[in-house]
Amino acid sequence: MIDTFFNATIMAQAWPIILAGLGNTLALSLMVVPLGLAGGMALALLSTLRSPWVRWPLMAWVDFFRAFPPLVLLIFLYAGLPFAGLELGGFACVGIAFFLNTGAYYGEVLRAGIESVAPGQIEAARSTGLTRLQALIWIVLPQAVRAVLPDLLSNTLEVVKLTSLASVVALPELLFQARQAQSLTYNPTPIVAAAVVYFLLLWPLVRLLSRLENRAVAAR
């Protein structure tokens, strides 16, 4: 059992490959988290416009991309679009898929945050001479973000975990590298190692979230 799943010799061989994968997973996360946040912020700010011409299409957009499994979106971009002569490559496909999918989730979280801020605050800010956008950015958003910080963090945890999907389109992130190492060595130790790396990387965030969530439920 130890020889199969925790083989030290294989581990020594596979370690550089795994480490390169970890680097790429971190780089990928640093790309897709801001991308999703930017998309979500745009959606949330748009949702403050009261016009039904904006609100309904926006809600449809968000629900559409929340209903779509991210892997389906990714495969559609990666395996479908080339038929239309649009060959984007794995990296761009991951970027677009994450922007659309995680943007919708971040958008919902941020919208809830903005709605939790009392409307009187905008009116008060406007009366001091700020424009609507200034009031949103300087008065409402800081409070909104603080109100939904646990949800934002929880979503970010999911996004980082989701970067493992990039292995399906052959981006050399942690899971992809581990599977390469596994097929080279005929031994599952590299995958176990990748799992351990993911766990060590994300455990602190999970602990923090668990505390924040317990506090939030207790406060209701």
Binding site: L157, K161, L162, S164
Partner: peptide, 10 residues
């Protein structure tokens, strides 16, 4: 904690 931290695909 373990199953919250690990990506499902992994």
């Amino acid at each position: 904690d373990l199953f919250r931290a690990l990506p499902p695909l992994v």
